[in-house]
Simulated assay, not measured.
Amino acid sequence: MTGPTIGTLRVNGATLHYEVRGRGPLLLLIPGGTGGAAAFDGIADDLAAEYTVATYDPRGMSGSTLDDPEAEQSVAEHADDALRILDLLSPCEPARVFGSSSGAIAALHLLTAHPERVERLVAHEPPVVEVLPDASEHRALVARVRATFHAEGLMPAMAVFAAGLKKEGAAPTGPKAATELPPQAAARAERTMANLPYFVGRIVPGFMSYTPDIHRLEALSDRLVLACGQDSRGELPYRPAAFLAEHLGTELRHFPGGHTGLTTHPTEFGEALRKEFRGGH
């Protein structure tokens, strides 16, 4: 299969790098964390057999540059970026949308702000911790991460963040031993590391303080699928999706792997995603 078509899109305060594959109705994939468009390399080609698959680097990540690198980041602005991609690639038809982690938070805002542009949204583990009964604890975690980042630097802040996300009572995991990666995976890992300071310093505080409009989600629940990793039970990113699914009276879907099942189980993950866009069970 030929590679993706690469484009750039000028948006408010940034220039977005985006990639398009395949043909058919539009499927927009919104990445989370630090992965950017490359996070979908394992599933995009397969999905492109049925859809025009578009993905992009969120503003400030990888190839999407900010006019002001120090600008605070808001969920609403990131959702507006997704809207601009939809308007460019599917101006007349609503699209299918998938968002993962922080990308799922942006996707939830896109759905509530512009429901006419979204036919169906699959939101995988959006860490909207403000909906949880113990939200104040997670607010304190974000404050600790930010304080540690400014006082001690990136890796100590990441350690605090990782400890806050894991299952209660789980043993802390040490750094993984270095392994020889294939060139493409090595390049992706290098980009991920380069994106980490921005993620910890800008995305984590801006996104984990976001509260979705639950009343709007109730009205739109027929086009929202909340999903979690089947190996994520008990971890912090799992809980908001499970809470929202129960509140909305919808079935929580379980995808292969954990929070990063997209990269650890790409074939099975892509198939589960395809099934949801065909209408679920």
Rank of each mutant, 00 (worst) to 15 (best):
G3D: 11
G3Q: 11
P4S: 13
I6P: 02
L9S: 12
E19C: 08
R21A: 08
R21P: 06
R23Q: 15
L27S: 05
L28P: 01
L29S: 12
L29P: 10
L29H: 03
G32F: 00
G33S: 02
G36R: 05
G36S: 09
D41F: 10
G42W: 00
A48D: 09
T52P: 09
P58V: 13
R59I: 09
M61F: 15
M61I: 14
T65H: 13
A76Y: 08
L83F: 08
R84M: 14
L86I: 15
L89C: 12
S90E: 08
G99I: 05
S101C: 12
S101I: 03
S102G: 14
T112L: 05
A113L: 08
P115L: 04
P115D: 05
E116D: 15
V122R: 02
H124Y: 15
E125S: 05
P127T: 06
V129N: 02
V131Q: 02
L132M: 10
P133V: 00
P133A: 14
P133W: 11
L141G: 06
V142M: 14
A143I: 00
R146Q: 15
T148W: 02
A151L: 07
E152F: 02
E152K: 08
M155T: 12
M155S: 09
M158F: 13
V160E: 10
G164V: 09
E168Q: 14
A170S: 15
A171P: 04
A177C: 06
A178I: 07
Q184A: 15
R188N: 11
Y210K: 09
T211F: 01
P212I: 10
R216Y: 07
A219S: 14
A219W: 11
L220E: 13
L220K: 07
D222R: 15
L224D: 00
L226V: 08
A227F: 03
G229D: 05
S232N: 03
G234D: 10
P240E: 01
A241E: 01
L248Q: 04
T250G: 08
E251S: 13
E251G: 10
R253Q: 09
H254L: 14
P256V: 00
G257I: 01
G261Y: 12
L262Q: 02
L262P: 03
T263N: 11
T264I: 03
F269A: 02
G270S: 06
E271F: 08
A272S: 15
R274D: 08
R274G: 04
R278K: 12
R278P: 00
